[in-house]
Amino acid sequence: MAQDNVRESDDSLPEHSEGIRVGRELLAATKPYVEESTATSWWYVGSTFLLMIAALTGAGLIPWWPLRVAFSVLGSLLMVRAFITFHDYLHGAILRQSRVAWWLFHAYGAFTLTPTRSWRASHNYHHGHVGQIMSASVGAFPLITARMWQNATPWQRFSYRAQRHPLVVLLSYPIVFGLNVTILPLLRDPANHLDSLVALICHFGLIAILWLLGGFTVVFFVILLPMTLASAMGSYLFFAQHSFRRMQIASPEAWSYYRGAMESSSYMGMNRVMQWFTGNIGYHHIHHLNVRIPFYRLPEVMAAIPELQSPLTTSLAPGEIADCFRYALWDEGKQRMVTYSEASSGALP
């Protein structure tokens, strides 16, 4: 992928300094870990998809509603894990030579409103620009400076706050995946996004079939509830790992892929159960440093490379979640993230 090639040849990456590897040397230290075990990859992919299908089938067939809710929630968690395997496949980290995997993940992307063409384009852009100030939402949530906020019009402020509002994350199923990832690319460039049309047909076709077979209740427990929960969880993980209180933003002159990975991407602390369901995506600083490392090897990389063991962190604690939404602007003078009220009350530098 384009951003991988740029990262490996970027002359702006700092060199080895005082025994601590940074930049190209740190990236080189991760390269032995891009080697995947095909059998291991298939074990994780196969088991995840089978468990997900079993959980969603139970949500659709079991008559007792509390158990249906439990299976539906379990299905949503397994959808998050399945999405991480889909994400790794599109990065070329797992099963890149497998035609079976190609069909499996393209089908998964279609049924979950994640057509591969638009997702890959926007996500690659995100990897190439993480840690940069962007007023537009291209492959990521927008991030502007306190000065830009102070100079913004009321409409620009409303638009920025709306895009980063918790409700957008909560309603990611229709807004992020339905509208931004699927419908808008199709409307803007129909010829190059026919897979978005296929995704809409597959997703809503499945809803129609389930409705005919079991009515709204089956659709709710098999599609609507798990898609809402999985989309919200996935979007929050994506949002929080690049918009957290302790993150750093480098100036355009000082920015590099290394700094984007190590200073603008977090390590999200989770218990082992949540690490499993989220496919180790909490090791996000390592993933951004080298996207070709399979998700199941990320803990191994952190344990083996000392320079990756003291990352900027966040967590799923309620206070940390609130901070991720509150600290929404980068203050160039203070060199830290600030709240809207801090930016509004501060003087222009």
Rank of each mutant, 00 (worst) to 15 (best):
G60I: 04
T38G: 03
A54Y: 04
G75F: 10
F71P: 00
F49M: 12
L78K: 03
R21G: 06
L90H: 14
V34I: 14
A28L: 12
E25Y: 05
A82R: 09
A39C: 08
P32V: 04
Y44S: 00
L27T: 04
L95S: 12
L77H: 01
L78F: 07
L90P: 03
L67N: 02
W42E: 01
V45Q: 00
I84K: 10
F49V: 11
E35L: 09
W42K: 02
A93H: 14
G19S: 03
T57S: 12
V80Y: 06
L50I: 13
E18N: 15
V73M: 12
A70I: 01
L51T: 04
R24V: 08
L67I: 09
S72A: 13
L74H: 09
V80N: 10
L74D: 07
P32I: 06
G92Q: 08
L50C: 13
R96L: 10
K31E: 11
W42V: 00
L51V: 05
M79W: 03
G23Y: 11
A54P: 02
A55W: 09
I62Y: 12
T40W: 05
P63V: 02
V73R: 09
V80H: 08
A59R: 00
L51G: 05
L50R: 06
I53E: 05
L50W: 09
L77A: 07
E18H: 15
V69R: 05
L67W: 07
L26V: 07
G92K: 08
T57K: 00
F71I: 01
L26H: 06
V45S: 03
V80G: 06
T85C: 14
E18Q: 15
T85K: 07
H87P: 15
I20T: 15
R81M: 15
A93Y: 13
